[in-house]
Amino acid sequence: MGYPTQAMQRSQEALALAQELAHPQSLAYARFYAAYLHHRRREAPAVQAQAEALLSLATTQGFPLWVGYGTCWRGWALAAQGQGEVGLAQLHQGLAALLATGQTLARALCLVLLAEAAEHTGQVEEALGLLAEALAAFEANSRGDLLAEVHRLQGAFLLRQAGPEAAHAESCFQEALALARRQQAMSWELRAALSLSRLWQHQGRCDEARRLLTEIYRWFTEGLDTADLREAKAFVHELPA
């Protein structure tokens, strides 16, 4: 993980192949993972576009599982674009639809999406509770693909409370960073490093912030136009010399 341009190319190839084969289940899978990829790239309009296409396909074909996933992705995208309450309602509806199919593995991902949507509406305590549930669900399922990001989100949300908990937040960012490194998940490592560097900047630890973020940023050879990499580059340039 750390090659966003190649990931996008593979996603587009999968979509094209599924459409060429005219195989609805394969196309549903491709739409789902395209939405997942755009979520990781923080591209809410693109997530919504894939969600709408997935919902249309799933409704026509009678695929209740994919209706649930499509509804969840659409809910997250709406919340990320300023329609928080509508998005939250869609996410709850989508999760209920998924659980009704017996797909319990989907719960952890949906809890993360719900937490992000809740934070968008200012429900920080609710968001932290949802992340705690998500962590427990990931650990129960032995899934680690989103663990680093969940820890990072915990830290970010702790800093948005009425009484920010800087020490606890830093611990979350450090855990996210360590976990991403163990998984060799460079995109999650970059995001965790950016959150930690911003905290260090507020604490006057600008040299540490610059060293940490610059080292990770220089690893990337593609995807320099993605939101995380643009923000990392801009942040390093803004740090005082």
Rank of each mutant, 00 (worst) to 15 (best):
V67Q: 15
R182W: 14
Y3P: 00
L131F: 14
M1P: 03
K233F: 10
A176P: 07
L55K: 15
A79G: 14
E116S: 02
Q25C: 00
G129C: 11
P164Q: 14
R210C: 02
A166I: 00
L213A: 03
Q25G: 00
E165V: 00
E238I: 03
E125H: 02
P45T: 09
Q83Y: 11
A241T: 01
S56V: 04
Q81C: 06
L105I: 12
C206S: 10
G122D: 12
S171D: 07
Y69Q: 13
V236K: 12
E238L: 08
R31Q: 13
A209S: 10
E85V: 05
E43K: 09
A115V: 05
A18C: 13
R107V: 01
L91C: 09
E119H: 09
Q48A: 13
A127P: 08
P164V: 06
Q174R: 14
L146V: 10
L190V: 09
T60I: 13
L105G: 05
E208P: 07
L229Y: 09
E222F: 08
A117L: 06
R107M: 07
A16F: 01
L91A: 11
S197K: 01
A127F: 04
T226R: 02
Q25V: 09
Q50W: 11
T226Y: 01
E189S: 00
E119W: 01
T5L: 14
L37V: 08
L109C: 04
A53I: 05
A132K: 14
W200F: 10
L239C: 10
L65W: 09
R31A: 07
L91H: 02
R42W: 05
V150N: 02
A16C: 05
L113D: 12
D225E: 14
S11R: 15
